[in-house]
Amino acid sequence: LALAYIGCLSHPLFDWFNSYGIRLLEPFSSQWFYGDTLFIIDIWLWAALIAGVWVSRRRERTGKAHWRTPALISFAAICAYILANGLITGRSEQLTAEAAQKKFNVAPTLVVANPVPVQFWKRETLWRDDSHYGQGSYTMFDDVRIDNSMRAHYMGVADKNAFEANVTRGSPLLFWSRMPVAQIVDAGNKRTLKISDQRFTDPLVGDRFSAYFPIGDESK
């Protein structure tokens, strides 16, 4: 029973560690919370968990003393790993905000350091203010690198409310999106509003985190 409770309570905790977000206060509040600490599938975390359990079970079966020790070491290593990743994220977000302000003379209202697969020492850094957004990268023990361009996201508070009321009409994507970006896509005589999330712009996954809304026919 204790293990069942640990499993149920640790699941949302580890969901909070990634950048997808979790609504911890449901059903009382739909507010999103983000840890931005671990990639959604962290192979190093899985490796430590598997190794700790496997070695401990093996020692137990052979009757060796202190067979729990490998599992306890694994647990301690995991805690240290999560703490270290949290510090990397905090540092990269701080440096990104400073770099964006220095390069573009803007004060970012939101900075996100996205963990990347396998390379836990790196972050994809994203920043935005009320009208524009940009990105960069960060490597531990190195300075942050900010891209030379910034673009308008057309998703200020007033724009987002207007889109939601007149075009997207309560889209689940807008409800979920942390860093929404609006873009007009022309296809022949038709114009389409594309809503995406700045965190997921990679061509390999971008379409899975985008929604399209027809907004007019220029031939009429």
Rank of each mutant, 00 (worst) to 15 (best):
P70I: 05
S196Y: 07
A158W: 07
C8F: 13
A84C: 09
S131P: 01
F200T: 03
Q94G: 06
A107W: 00
Y154E: 12
S219Q: 10
D143A: 13
P180D: 08
I78K: 02
V144S: 10
F104N: 12
S56I: 08
Y81K: 06
S149Q: 13
N166M: 01
V116H: 10
Y20T: 08
S19M: 12
L174N: 02
Q119N: 15
L173A: 10
Q31T: 03
D159N: 11
N166D: 05
N105A: 07
L9G: 07
F209G: 09
Y34K: 02
V118L: 15
A77N: 03
D207C: 01
T192G: 02
P214G: 01
F200Y: 15
A48H: 03
S74P: 00
T168C: 06
S210R: 09
V157D: 10
R208V: 13
E164V: 00
W32G: 09
R191K: 12
I6E: 12
T69D: 04
T201C: 07
V111N: 10
W16Y: 13
G216A: 00
T37H: 03
A165W: 03
A65C: 06
I78D: 11
V157K: 10
A158G: 05
W176M: 09
R151W: 08
G216R: 02
L95F: 05
T192C: 02
T37F: 06
R178K: 11
F120T: 14
N161Q: 10
T125F: 02
I215F: 03
F28Y: 08
T96L: 11
V111D: 12
P108Y: 01
F163G: 00
S29L: 00
P172R: 01
Q198C: 04
A71G: 04
G170M: 02
W121S: 13
I73G: 00
R199C: 09
G156P: 05
K190C: 05
Y20I: 07
Q94N: 06
F141H: 11
M155P: 11
S30Q: 04
T69M: 08
N166V: 00
A2P: 07
Y212R: 09
Y212A: 07
R169M: 05
T109Y: 01
P180E: 03
P214A: 04
Q31S: 03
Q119H: 14
Y133H: 15
V53Q: 05
F14A: 10
T139V: 14
S196V: 08
R23M: 04
R208S: 15
D42H: 08
S131Y: 10
V112G: 07
D142H: 15
S210V: 09
V205Q: 13
S210T: 12
